[in-house]
C-alpha cells in the first residue's frame, strides 16, 4: 500500500473515531434491527433459521447505508474534501481511502458480530462461518457502491433519502448472492459459486467505483 493512500485512510479513521460515538450507531442499528424480526415474525427456531440469512444481510446492507453519511457529509461541509482535491489528491484515492476506512470502522465490526446474531437465530456453525465470509466479501462492495451515491448527493438538502433511492437498487446483486450463500450453506449445499461471484463483484467495484465516485465528487464540489 502506497504511503499517501495509507495516510489518507488513517486520516479518515481518526476523523470518524474522534466524532464521539457516532461510529457505533450502525453496529447498534444492525443488532437492534435483527432482534426486531423474531418479535415481528415468529420466535420459532426452525423458521428463524430459515429467515436468518436474509435478515442478517438486509440489516447489514442498511447499516452500511446508514454509515456512509458520516464519512462524507461533515468533510464536505467543513471544506476538508475541497482542500484535499485542491492539494492535488486524486478523487479516486479519496474515494478508496474513505471506502476502506468506512469498511474498517463499520463493515469489519459487522462481520465480527454476525456470528453472534447467527447464534441468536439458531443457524448452524457451518452457515455461520459462511455468513461471516459472505459479509467479509460483500460489505466492502457495498461501501464502494455507496460511496458513488454519496458523492452524487453531497451538496443536496435531502441527500439522505435520495441516497437510499439511488443506491439500494445497485445493492441488490450483492444482497442476492450474499444471502443465498448463507442459505445454501444452511441446507448443506455448495456455496462456493456465490462466494466467487461476491469476490468478482468486489474486484469489479474496486476497479470502477473510485472513478465514478471521483467524477461525481468533482461535480458536487465544482
Amino acid at each position: 500500500m502506497s504511503s499517501p493512500l495509507w495516510s489518507l485512510v488513517k486520516r479518515e479513521i481518526s476523523v470518524v473515531l474522534r466524532s464521539q460515538s457516532e461510529f457505533v450507531y450502525p453496529l447498534a442499528f444492525f443488532i437492534i434491527v435483527t432482534s426486531l424480526f423474531p418479535l415481528a415474525v415468529t420466535p420459532d427456531p426452525v423458521q428463524l433459521a430459515f429467515l436468518a440469512p436474509g435478515i442478517i444481510w438486509v440489516a447489514a446492507l442498511l447499516s452500511i447505508l446508514l454509515s456512509l453519511n458520516g464519512f462524507y457529509q461533515a468533510d464536505y461541509e467543513e471544506g476538508g474534501l475541497e482542500q484535499l482535491l485542491l492539494a492535488g489528491v486524486p478523487g479516486s484515492s479519496i474515494v478508496i481511502a474513505k471506502s476502506a476506512a468506512n469498511w474498517l470502522v463499520t463493515g469489519l465490526p459487522l462481520v465480527m458480530i454476525a456470528p453472534l446474531i447467527g447464534v441468536l437465530f439458531n443457524i448452524d456453525m457451518q452457515a455461520n462461518w459462511v455468513a461471516m465470509l459472505s459479509l467479509l466479501l460483500g460489505t466492502p462492495t457495498l461501501c464502494l457502491i455507496g460511496s458513488i451515491g454519496m458523492c452524487l448527493t453531497l451538496g443536496l438538502r435531502n441527500g439522505g433519502v435520495l441516497l437510499t433511492l439511488l443506491v439500494l437498487p445497485l445493492f441488490i446483486p450483492v444482497l442476492i448472492f450474499g444471502a443465498s450463500a448463507v442459505q445454501a450453506a444452511s441446507i448443506g449445499l455448495d456455496y462456493s459459486g456465490q462466494l466467487a461471484i461476491l469476490g468478482a463483484l468486489l474486484i469489479l467495484s474496486i476497479i470502477l467505483a473510485p472513478h465514478a465516485g471521483a467524477a461525481a465528487m468533482k461535480i458536487s464540489i465544482d
Binding site: I148, L152, L166, P169, L170, I172, P173, I176, F177, I197, L201, L208, A212, A215, A216, I219, S220, D222
Partner: peptide, 25 residues
C-alpha cells in the same frame, strides 16, 4: 448543468449494473 452531469454518471453506473442485476436475479 450540475444536475445533467450527476444524472449522467448515475445512468452510466446503472448501465454497468443492469446486466449484473439481470443475471443475479
Amino acid at each position: 448543468k450540475t444536475a445533467d452531469r450527476a444524472a449522467a454518471i448515475l445512468a452510466l453506473v446503472g448501465l454497468v449494473n443492469i446486466p449484473i442485476i439481470h443475471f443475479s436475479v
